[in-house]
Each structure stands twice: as C-alpha cells, then as structure tokens.
Design a protein around this nucleic acid. Structure first.
Length: 948
RNA sequence: GCCUUGGUGGCGGAAUUGGUAGACGCGCUGGAUUCAAAAUCCAGUUCUUUCGGGAGUGUGGGUUCGAUUCCCACCCAAGGUACCA
C-alpha cells in the first residue's frame, strides 16, 4: 500500500478539528504547560516558509508535552492591526477590515494544512473590538495609575490625589515629569480642576507629552524609520524632518530598574537579555547643573565621569535643546539656525552611526564652571541627541574620544587632568588607572574616590548630585494612523484628556472616507464625521454636536502596533470573557507561559513592552506573576535567494549579469518565480510584472538574461518568498515539518532550498514501508495486538536501535535541537529496515517518537496498529539503558594528537591494561619507529594519545 | 558607529564536558532493476598525493598531551538600532 500523504493528512486534520483533540481545559488534574507562539501579522502575501519554522518547533514541543502527560495550552491568533493593510487601503480604498479578514482566512487555511495542534477555540484578533476592548481597558488603568517609588510599584491615582490633598507633593516619592513644580496641600486645593488634571498628567503612567517624530510634509504624515531611506521617504522620495508633536507616552522608564532586575529570573537567550540590558542602559554618575554666564539660565548634564569635571573645556548641547534659542548670541544666530536646520534633516540613527564627520557650532554663550568659575564655551553638536539624558554633555576632551575629536577639529583646548598620561594622540578613558591632577580638591585621587568627593562638593553648593541614569526613554504610544486601536479618550472644555468609563468599552474604530491624514494635517480619524463623545448619552455621536459642554471631540490618534500584543498571552487563558480581561480562575490555573518561541527582532519592542505591562498588571494585582514567560527561544529567520536584474545608470538598459563588467548599474529585485534553476529570467513575465520596464532594452548574453543572486532575509518586499502550499501539495505537511526542522539549528538563520526535501520525504516513505512488509505492501507487524495475537521475532539489535533513538530524541526535544532528531529518525529507520524489523514492541513506540514531528503519518500508523484513540493520547516510551550496554570500545590511537589507527578493546579495561595493550601493538611500534614515547595519555572510554 | 549572532566538503548541516572532524540528508559518480523512465536498492564521494603519506573547521597568534570547541587580535556576512511587526 502506497504512502498516500494527501489522503492521510486531510483525514487527520479533519479528525482533529471534529474531535477538538487539542482543546485545552482551564482546569485539570494534570500539570499545566503553556506553549506560546508569537502570533502572526496577516499580510497579503500569505504565509511563507519562514513563518512556520517557529510554529513547527513549538508544535513539536507541545505535542511532546502532551505525550508526557501535561495539560497543554497551545493557542494561536492574529496581530491584525498594522501598517501594510492601511497602506493597501490608501492605495485601493478597500477597508482594512475587509483585506485583513481575507488575509486571516488564507493564513488559517495555510496553517491548518501544516497540521498544528493549536486550540483554535481560543483564537484572538487584535483588531476585533471584543479583543481591543481590553486593550483600551488597560490603557485606562495605566492612566489611572502612578508609580510610587516608596512601595516600588504602580498604585491607583486616587491614592496620589489623597496625598496631594493632605500634604501637597513635596514629600511624594513618585516617578514624574522632570519639570513638575512643588506645591502645598492648600495650593493643590486652590488649583482649578483643569490645573489639577494637568498636574496629575505628570504622574500618570500614560500621559501626554511632546515627542519627536519623523515628519514628511509632502505626504502629510509621520514615517517609521523603516519607511525612510537615505533621509527621504521610501515612497516618493520626499524630504523628512524631525518635528515635535503632542502624543501619548507610556511611563516605561518608571520600570527601568525592575525590567533590568527581572531578566535575572527568566530563562531567555543571553543575547536577547543583553539587548534589553543595553536598551535600558543603566549608568551611574552625577547630574551637574551649569549656570549660563550673563543670563538667568542654567542647564543640567548627566555625566558618568564627574571626576573629570576640571577637564571640561566646552559644553555641547543637542541642537534641539530648548536652551539653544535662548542663549545664542546675536552674532552666532545665523550660523546656529543654519546648523539646526541641517540637523533636523538627519535621522537619529544617522547621527549616531556617523562618527567620522565632526560638525557643530559655537553658540557664543558661556557656562560657568561650578568650582573654578571659569567661563566654558557652549557649543551645539549633532552627536548629542536630545532624547538621551538631558540632551547636554559636559565635554571633557582628555577623557572621551568623541569630545577629543570635536575639540581637535574646532581647536578647542584639551587640558590634561590625568597624572602622567600622554594625551597628545588620543583621549584616555581608562577609569581604573586614573589618578586626577590639575583638578583643585580632586588632585591625587583615584577614580572612585574622586567621584564620591566631587558629588559631595556639588551637593554642598547645590549644583549637582549622584544619579542613576537610564537610556530607556518613555515609549511614544500615539500613531497618526487609521488601522489601530482607538483611544477611549475625549478632550474636555479645558482641553484636558478624559477617559471614557470602562462600561462603555469598546470604543469602536469609526468609518472614514479616506485613510490619509486630513488636509489640515490631522491623523486619519480626523476624517471621521461621527467621532465625538456625548457624556449624557454615553455614546459616540456626530461631530456636528460638539459643544464642549456635553459633547466633546474624541482622540484622533490610534495606538501603536505593540498595544495589542502586550497582554495577548494572558487573554488566551480566557479569550471569550466579556466581563473581565480574564477570570481569576483562568489566570490562577495557567499562571504564565512556560515556553515562548519567536524571533529575536522583537527583543527591544514587543518583548520589552509586554514585560512592562505585565509588571504593571502584577502591581495592580490582576496577574500572579511579574514575568509572563519563563523560557523563551528565538527561532532564526529563513533566508531566501533573491534575484536581481541590473539597470544601467543613464541608459536605463537592463543588462545581463555577465555583461556588467565595469558599467555602473543599479540592482533591482526580480520576483524569484520568473527565474529558472539556471538563473535565467523570463523577460516577458518580468516586463508584465513591472510595467515600467515594458519598453526597456534587455541586453542578453547567449540569447539569455542571467540574473544575479544574493542571500537575504525571506520577505515579500524582496520578492524571494517561497510558499509552503506547493510543498504541502507535492510532498505533504509531514515532509514540510520534518524538512523545516532538518534545515539546521532552530535558533540560527538558514537558507531555504527546496532541493533537499526529497531526503525527508524519502525517509517518510521508508518509515511507511517498515510497517507495510506484508504481501503487496500491506500493513503488517508481528506481536500481540489489541485485536489479534501473533508471535513476534524481537532482536536485541532492534531494541538497541529503538532505545538509543528514544534517548537521543528525548534529549534533543528538551534541548530544542530538532534538526538532529530528524537525523536520528533516519538512522533508526535505516537500521530497522536493515534488521528487517517487524516487531510491534519496536514499531509501536517508534510511531509515538515520530508523532510530534510528523503527526499525520503517525496517527495513520497508530490506527493501523489497532488503536481507536488519537496518538496524541499515547504516553511517551520509557528509555531503558540496559539495551545500550556495550562490551567493547573502539579506541582511537593518536600520536601527538593525530589519530593514526583504531583498536578495539574491552569496555571495562583499566588504564594500565589499555596502555600495555596499545604499546604492545605492532602498529604502535611502526608509528614510533624505535622512539621511546615521552608520555602516554589514556582516558578510559575515550582516547589514547602517545606523545614523543 | 554601537549591540548581537554566525563563518566546518559542491550544498544544508553533525561533532551534547577540550578527546576518532565531516554523522544525517541533498547533489554528484558508478552499478543493479527496467524496452525506457519514474520509483527503489547497492557502492563511492573533504582536499592533495610520488598511494608511504601529507594537509584541513574564515585569517594570524596563544594555552594544552590533544582545540571546530578555550583565550587574544583581525577579516567577512547577517539581524537590531526606539513609528515595519
């Protein structure tokens, strides 16, 4: 009987769906195990072979855990708000909800074909109002919370208001805006309601603030860094400037230290932890206030090297620093303004990356040195970023290379404050060996003592203090987009934001005519005509009714992509609950995620924000764990082989790869589906696909157009995607699953090449044949079965093969080394085939071992073995080491570390006996050629090495 | 620039604590079967060689009886870098 994978796979997929085989219950005698995948964004291109990589791995793990007797929660859903659907809507006018729905349908079909053991009854979609109701709910809770540094957690804002009423804010130990003024209880009570709200905003965990954005005036919209190429918009090539905008922010900085500390108790990959650690960027130092000479102004800098304060020969402010226009002298004004304008065009990343070009301008103003009272020139330079620290730097050229280069470039003096150190060529940044000189009261002190001393002196004169600084900035939470969660926010008569009462959630996304920003530059929701909040009717009403008395305008921004993904893992525990985000029982049972698999590209986005929300939820008592995922694995990405055609600069001719020689060409992506295995392009298909090349001249070599090839991340935008559907069709889902695992280690990136799939497919056929040794390839196994009894011929060899496979596969799954277990299965089947094994005692456990990897074929074989229940209910075979005991060991005999021959010796032979046996061997004498070895290393069970 | 990861045959990769480098699969070569093909099976396949052997895990150095594995320096590629998700 043939291995008819198409029939078998369809049969079992239907069976699993009908019987709800993988539905998880919220209570069980079994121990719980929660396996989570990062849910996909349903793009129009459909699923490509890179997506399922992590899903297959987690599915294997989830299935394995079921065999080991756990109650497994393995849900899936869609991160269905996002930019591509909106972009498509702008281009076609099609509502994003419609395209998203269609894309989800396609994703689901594709996912179903691969045979995942998801509990689909728990599916969530972030763009579903039933889901985003709870995203809005969390936003309100954040708004109604402040961070109490005393208790080191988030608390209800009513507690803060009570404190203000009792004692003002001077003794309140809270995380708040830097510019928060001090007031007494009496003053608080006298403030207007609007004023009070304004002050509370400085404490709330989500608040309105000015933040910088990439503004593209031509497109009238804010762009992601991703959408900007070489300083201009990717679409259309328009200029982009950085501009300040009032937006919602999340006070994630309040959690900086806890986010750092929490990393120690979770089993996440070290590189990912490093990423988060660097992102949070804790540094210890001091905050120092400098007065501006001949002015009322002063500014603060943060420095990790306050000990070098006597070496400061200039100050550098970020060009965007608020003080710049206030202190610039009239004769420097033109130069400063010109410089600011140039900087506004550069992206932050550009400014950070570019260390070679040194630019800056002198403002004409001077700061006063807090101790020497000497004037210090104040410069601006774009290597200082406004958003980092205070946006101002105390420049000490002798101790910092960037300051050194800047000083050299502008001929600013470089005073040396390090004893016996030559700074004529470069700055000296070594803290450990530092002894300070030319520094008044710091002379002769080493680094640590100097830091302590200078901080004490600064505190004495009220111009500084020791400080821990974090690089982590508060997260901007507004997006000027349509396809995202609307805020449950309206603006009152004072223009202050107000939350809509929880019981009226969700506030649903309004319909708009077009998805672009309005002509006045408002976000797309500004196009909605029905987008006002009536506080009497508690309903969204027409904008015409806005009177700022009972009907108010609603927020026009929407939430960012990460809003919906920051708590979805908890919502899966109780996804249909309409009265709570999840029930107490559900969260108490499932607790947290035991295994989370997803890409490392989310390290400092989703994976940091979700930890922040979880800690907030924990503080407010809604979840029992302050870290939501015990273990996390990063799957590597799959790279594809992109194809390029080459357009000659100037002529516009498209030149075959071999004819480029020294011509100047621009490589352009060609869809890989137009290219055959010999790298020849179907020119007509290409022209049809990209009409702008319809009339272009294609210069051929030997009558063919040959493309260039390059390995890149597999992505729709690079036109190098390979779809899993065809592989499922041609080889089956089990082959696809095995092949994706067989490609290489889960965590590494690896190329996709379908050529090798015949290998794993051949293995499945061989596995099938092992159970079909009867006449005409009928199913046949020997041994007692539930239905009929027969005698089996069980060999010690087969038992050994089986048990070494059990051992290896078990270790592999526990270590997430799925590629090596596929190889192990192949060896096992090759050996059993050679042994002509037909024994049920071997073949039954083998089916269970294979089941997590290739579930369809295993189900079919399991059924044929006479079982009436799904193989998912079978328990994992038990490894018995007795079958693996060896009586001899083949020793490699090395001379000076190089193996020359091997020698079989009894496994239990001791060190001395091994040495004697080896030295007596003729080949040893042959190798030595009469020399006496200096030393003989014998490691019993491992190796013999003869030196000399 | 900074942070992170990786570099082993023609290709994907294996080598779990420093102990037989190249498991397993693809591809290729030869053979069996076949009218032929597909499928299947068998044998071989790191390079080099005067057939004794010699060299070999990005490059250069180091530690060690022994290094793909540990240390130092460098080269190359990929990912991230705060509004792609």
């Amino acid at each position: 009987m043939q291995y008819d994978f198409n029939r078998i796979e369809a049969k079992w997929q239907l069976y699993w769906a009908k019987n709800q085989t993988f539905k998880a219950e919220n209570s069980s005698d079994k121990e719980k195990f929660y396996v989570l995948d990062m849910f996909p964004y349903p793009s129009g291109a459909g699923l490509h072979v890179g997506h399922p990589l992590g899903y297959i791995a987690s599915d294997i793990y989830a299935r394995y855990k079921r065999h080991r007797g756990f109650n497994v929660l393995h849900p899936q859903g869609y991160d269905s708000f996002g930019l591509p659907a909106e972009q498509y809507a702008i281009q076609t006018g099609q509502h994003p909800a419609i395209t998203t729905e269609a894309n989800i349908k396609r994703y689901r079909e594709q996912l179903d074909k691969i045979g995942f053991s998801f509990d689909w009854s728990r599916e969530v979609r972030t763009s579903d109002p039933k889901y985003y109701k709870w995203t809005q709910w969390i936003f309100i809770q954040l708004f109604n919370s402040w961070y109490n540094k005393g208790s080191d957690k988030a608390e209800d804002i009513t507690g803060l208001i009570a404190l203000f009423e009792k004692e003002g804010n001077s003794k309140v130990n809270a995380v708040c805006d830097e510019d928060t003024e001090v007031f007494s209880a009496e003053e608080w009570k006298r403030f207007s309601a609007g004023r009070q709200q304004e002050i509370l905003l400085k404490y709330r965990l989500t608040y309105l603030a000015e933040s910088e954005v990439n503004w593209c005036p031509a497109l009238g919209t804010v762009l992601a860094n991703d959408e900007i190429v070489n300083g201009v918009s990717e679409r259309g090539g328009h200029p982009v400037i950085r501009k300040k905008m009032t937006q919602w922010s999340m006070r994630i900085s309040a959690y900086a230290q806890r986010l750092l500390d929490g990393l120690e108790k979770i089993d996440w990959p070290q590189p990912l932890k490093d990423s988060q650690t660097n992102w949070i960027g804790r540094s210890e130092g001091a905050s120092v206030t400098f007065k501006v000479l001949d002015s009322e102004q002063a500014f603060a800098v943060f420095t990790t090297r306050p000990d070098t304060i006597f070496g400061a020969s200039f100050m550098t402010l970020a060009p965007e620093h608020e003080l710049v226009p206030l202190i610039t002298t009239s004769e420097r004004k033109a130069a400063v303004e010109a410089y600011i304008e140039t900087t506004a065009k550069r992206s932050e990343r550009d400014r950070m990356a570019d260390v070679k070009t040194i630019t800056g301008v002198f403002t004409g103003a001077y700061a006063e040195h807090p101790f020497t009272k000497e004037p210090i020139p104040i410069w601006i330079g774009d290597y200082v970023l406004a958003g980092y620290g205070t946006g101002a730097v105390m420049s000490v050229p002798c101790g910092d290379q960037r300051d050194y280069d800047f000083a050299r470039h502008f001929n600013i003096p470089i005073p040396n404050i390090f004893d016996g150190v030559d700074i004529s060529e470069e700055a000296f940044a070594d803290k450990e060996k530092t002894v300070i000189t030319n520094s008044g009261f710091l002379n002769g002190l080493p680094y640590k003592k100097a830091v302590q001393r200078v901080i004490a002196e600064l505190e004495k004169i009220g111009q500084g203090k020791g400080k821990v600084n974090y690089r982590l900035r508060d997260a901007v939470f507004s997006r000027q987009r349509y396809w995202g969660e609307p805020f449950p926010v309206y603006y009152d008569a004072d223009g202050m934001p107000r939350m809509i009462n929880e019981k009226y959630l969700p506030i649903e996304l309004p319909e708009v005519e077009k998805y672009l920003p309005t002509e006045t530059g408002e976000p797309p929701l500004g196009n909605a005509t029905h987008w006002a909040w009536d506080i009497e009717r508690s309903a969204v009403v027409s904008n015409d009714l806005i009177d700022h008395k009972t009907v108010f305008p609603l927020e026009l921004n929407t939430m960012p992509g990460w809003a919906g993904s920051s708590q979805y893992f908890n919502r899966y525990m109780d996804p249909h609950n309409e009265t709570e985000i999840f029930s107490r029982e559900a969260i108490d049972y499932w607790q947290d995620v035991d295994l989370y698999i997803g890409g490392s590209e989310h390290a400092t986005g989703h994976l940091l924000y979700s930890r922040f929300w979880q800690k907030f939820m924990y503080d407010r008592g809604w979840v029992p764990k302050d870290e939501y995922a015990k273990k996390l694995i990063n799957q590597g990405m799959i790279t594809g082989t992109s194809a390029f055609v080459y357009r000659e600069e100037g002529s516009g001719k498209v030149i075959s790869k071999g004819l480029i020689t020294d011509k100047r060409v621009t490589p352009i992506h060609a869809d890989v589906s137009f290219v055959n295995a010999s790298d020849e392009l179907d020119v007509d298909a290409f022209k049809k696909w990209q009409p702008e090349y319809k009339d272009a001249e294609f210069v051929l070599e030997d009558g063919k157009y040959v493309v260039g090839r390059e390995i890149e991340k597999m992505s729709k935008s690079k036109y190098n995607v390979v779809n899993p559907d065809e592989i499922c069709e041609q080889y089956g889902a089990d082959s696809l699953r095995l092949y994706e695992m067989f490609l290489g280690p889960l965590e590494q990136s690896k190329p996709w090449n379908t050529a090798g799939i015949t290998g794993v497919h051949g293995f499945l056929k061989k596995l099938w044949r092992l159970y079909h040794s009867g006449p005409n390839g009928e199913f046949y196994v020997e041994g007692a079965s539930p239905s009929k009894g027969s005698v089996e011929d069980l060999s010690a060899e087969s038992l050994k093969t089986l048990h070494k496979t059990i051992k290896k596969v078990e270790e592999d799954i526990e270590n997430f080394s799925f590629n090596t277990s596929v190889a192990t299965f192949m060896i096992c089947v090759n050996e059993l085939t050679a042994q002509k094994c037909k024994s049920r005692t071997i073949l039954e456990p083998l089916a269970v071992l294979v089941a997590p990897y290739a579930p369809h074929i295993s189900e079919e074989l399991w059924e044929k073995l006479g079982h009436s229940e799904s193989i998912a209910t079978a328990s994992w075979p038990t490894f018995n080491p007795e079958y693996l005991v060896e009586s001899t060991k083949e020793y490699p005999i090395s001379f000076n570390g190089k193996k020359r021959f091997t020698l079989e010796l009894p496994a239990d032979m001791d060190k001395e006996a091994i040495e004697t046996a080896v030295m007596a061997h003729e080949k040893t004498q042959e190798q030595l050629q009469g020399r006496t070895p200096k030393k003989v290393i014998v490691v019993p069970g491992r190796i013999v090495n003869i030196v000399g």
